[in-house]
């Protein structure tokens, strides 16, 4: 029974056997405060999360739209540190041995922490994979090497602008799953045509056996269901952190915050589960 990349692989194998796509919710660690965020995180598997992306807040999230920017700002304003984020991961893992947990963010906080120490501490906290948005393959060796040594999957991103030559290079060092950025844009601001996303996925599938997750432009359960009909995983972030935001009273967590988020996550998870007919379209991931 091992964690890290093995836990991710095991989860995707189990889902392939079930013949459905994974639902991956994203929240920003410490949004709106550490206690509420930990409570939300702990509930996600029970609400239908198959994997979880936990955002590491950064002051300058250049690939994120206003919703996730605001989520990170709330967390930082509440005092969230990288050590807090790793402790949240460890508490989560103590209660859940099966749901893969992936940290997502930007390189500078990792670099300041020290890439080797970070990889080791993240693994020790029960983290399984890393997505670092501003580390293209040209720059990721300094994290990929310690991540591999620690048994963490360094998940790489493919964009609609990625040409075939880059695609090969990206996939050659990708681990865990492939994250397909479905729009040319930042998180949560626009949505791509489903047909275009399917075509993008087709191109990636020809080049790899890794599961492919789709994110950056998935807004609601209906769209999640559409994408789940052909993707291996669907990531929803902005809509969830917007729900956190709208549940706040005077900028603080309210008694209904966790329940409000839970209702949306359940609905999104249902969308993904309904996305693929049982009698066909089994995952090839």
């Amino acid at each position: 029974m091992s964690g890290g990349r093995a836990r991710i692989a095991r989860r995707f194998q189990a889902l392939a056997a079930e013949g459905r796509a994974a639902f991956i919710p994203f929240i920003s660690a410490g949004d709106p405060d550490r206690e509420t965020s930990s409570a939300i995180l702990a509930r996600l598997p029970g609400l239908g999360a198959d994997l979880i992306e936990l955002g590491m807040p950064f002051s300058d999230p250049m690939a994120d739209g206003p919703s996730i920017q605001a989520a990170g700002e709330r967390a930082l304003a509440a005092g969230q540190t990288m050590a807090d984020t790793l402790e949240m991961a460890a508490s989560f893992r103590a209660a859940d041995a099966e749901t893969p947990l992936v940290l997502m963010g930007y390189f500078n906080p990792i670099y300041r922490y020290g890439a080797e120490a970070f990889a080791a501490d993240a693994r020790a906290a029960g983290v399984d994979g890393l997505i670092v948005v501003d580390l293209p393959p040209e720059e990721d060796a300094e994290l990929r090497v310690p991540a591999e040594a620690a048994g963490l999957a360094l998940i790489r991103l493919v964009a609609p602008t990625t040409d075939d030559a880059r695609l090969g290079r990206i996939l050659a060092g990708c681990d865990g799953f492939v994250y397909y950025v479905s729009v040319t844009g930042i998180t949560g601001t626009k949505s791509a045509m489903t047909g275009d996303i399917a075509a993008g996925l087709e191109r990636i599938r020809k080049a790899t056996d890794l599961p492919v997750a789709v994110g950056f432009g998935v807004r609601d359960a209906g769209q999640a269901a559409e994408i789940a009909s052909f993707a291996d995983a669907v990531v929803v972030g902005s809509a969830i952190v917007q729900r956190i935001e709208s549940s706040l009273v005077d900028g603080k967590a309210a008694s209904g915050t966790v329940a409000a988020v839970a209702a949306l996550v359940r609905e999104l998870a249902g969308g993904v589960r309904n996305g693929r007919p049982r009698d066909g379209g089994g995952s090839d991931g």
């Binding site: 501003d134 293209p136 040209e138 602008t161 880059r166 990206i170 950025v181 040319t184 844009g185």
Partner: peptide, 12 residues
């Protein structure tokens, strides 16, 4: 130095 940008921007 280097090129620490999101994959979407790398080709550009």
């Amino acid at each position: 130095g280097g090129r620490y940008v999101a994959e979407t921007l790398m080709p550009l």
